[in-house]
């Protein structure tokens, strides 16, 4: 067992536990998009970042195992800024159709945008994107139409972020 401190709470978890899992045990929700219980974590979404005293940078909590005596912060201003910055990038390449989206109300992207306090996308929506078929008057080679070939589900590349976050490890 390993004892560490997360946001001031001392918690003891089995060795090899990820910081994210340990945080959950401590009742602390770390924002995330790519981690699920069904798969090995692989740290691509860059929302679950934390700061560890004495370590440089912001490691992903899903791929970083706990260590004895670790002092982890999940909610510093620096973290908030970076998370909001990452989310701003996600949304800068995402359709603005929440009201008519089938996922409205059950969308992790939406939830996370709220969780990190994203209010404004300063990049605008005129840049390169996977969202619109035509861009700046020309064909957008990054765009692909919705794939409805499977009888049971649709695949909309314009909304790929969550999926991308989950599978970018390929």
């Amino acid at each position: 067992m390993v004892t560490l401190t997360i946001d001031g709470n001392e918690i003891t978890v089995p060795e090899g536990t990820s910081i994210m899992r340990a945080s959950m045990e401590a009742g602390i929700e770390v924002p995330k998009l790519c981690a699920t219980d069904m798969m090995d974590s692989f740290g691509s979404c860059r929302l679950c970042l934390v700061e560890i005293q004495g370590r440089a940078g912001m490691p992903a909590s899903c791929t970083t195992p706990v260590a004895p005596g670790m002092n982890v912060s999940t909610q510093t201003q620096r973290l908030k800024d970076v998370r909001r910055g990452v989310m701003e990038l996600y949304i800068s390449d995402h359709p603005l159709d929440c009201l008519t989206c089938a996922a409205n109300g059950d969308c992790e992207l939406q939830d996370m945008a709220g969780a990190v306090g994203l209010r404004d996308v300063r990049y605008g929506y005129d840049g390169s994107n996977h969202v619109k078929a035509r861009d700046n008057g020309g064909i957008n080679l990054n765009w692909a139409p919705k794939d409805e070939s499977n009888p049971y589900f649709t695949f909309d590349p314009a909304k790929m972020h969550r999926l991308f976050a989950v599978c970018a490890g390929l």
Binding site: S44, V86, L89, G169
Partner: peptide, 13 residues
């Protein structure tokens, strides 16, 4: 490589 968003989208932005 495209794996993480800050690099993938951030660089284009």
């Amino acid at each position: 490589c495209g794996k993480c968003t800050p690099c993938r989208i951030g660089s284009t932005r």
